[in-house]
Design a protein around this nucleic acid. Sequence first.
DNA 1: TGCAAATATTCCTATATCGGAATATAATAG
DNA 2: CTATTATATTCCGATATAGGAATATTTGCA
Lengths: 111, 111
Amino acid sequence: MARTPTTHDPFNAVAEPKRRQVLEILGANELSVSEMVELLGWSQPTVSKHLGVLKQVGLVSERRVGRQRLYRVNAERLKSIHDWVSPFERFWNESYDRLDEVLQVVQEKEK
Amino acid sequence: MARTPTTHDPFNAVAEPKRRQVLEILGANELSVSEMVELLGWSQPTVSKHLGVLKQVGLVSERRVGRQRLYRVNAERLKSIHDWVSPFERFWNESYDRLDEVLQVVQEKEK
DNA sequence: TGCAAATATTCCTATATCGGAATATAATAG
DNA sequence: CTATTATATTCCGATATAGGAATATTTGCA
């Protein structure tokens, strides 16, 4: 068995750094392929192919205007990643450390 | 050129669903390989191999006790994922929609 | 010393990838 | 209708998987 295809889910699609970059430059905007080629400095087929993966997995949507294709981020598809990783946030977030300290103090007092 | 190796960074390591499951059952605990084999119902080599990837990328750390190896999550290594995805949160989070509404009202009044 | 438990590693194979180069397709202008 | 712009697709090759089966390694115990 091989690795799960990049088009299988957002986790796999976003594992490729260039695809993350595409989503970053898109942000809240709508950009054409040639604008992205300009901004990213990659070849046009490279940009189109990454957009193809992102589109298949639903991370971007496409709108045709003349001979251009305008892409935008479909951010809800990133929610699954956020939801998965968020529970771990408490392990590096300082405010949770503070909470632990407070709880320790409370426990001390209860002895 | 091939796909970025799974051991290259947390994004690639975590793209595999089974490795996410391993991190989930570990949570805040420390588990031996055989406990994970028991909990997950996978073959021992499968568990060990996924742990190997997670360890190489720094997502888990290992402690040897007798002939057991106890693993625990190194959650800070997930921070990069959280940091990358968080800026997109505003696109699906309702409270931001509310904020937008408030801002619109303010803008209306300023006219 | 020698067996058993706990874990890691090797060997195997089918399968996708990513980028470059070349080419195909679609839409507009003249 | 033809040339041109904008974008997608195909063909190529080197590379790394993931799981199963078998085996190796390490440690503890009698």
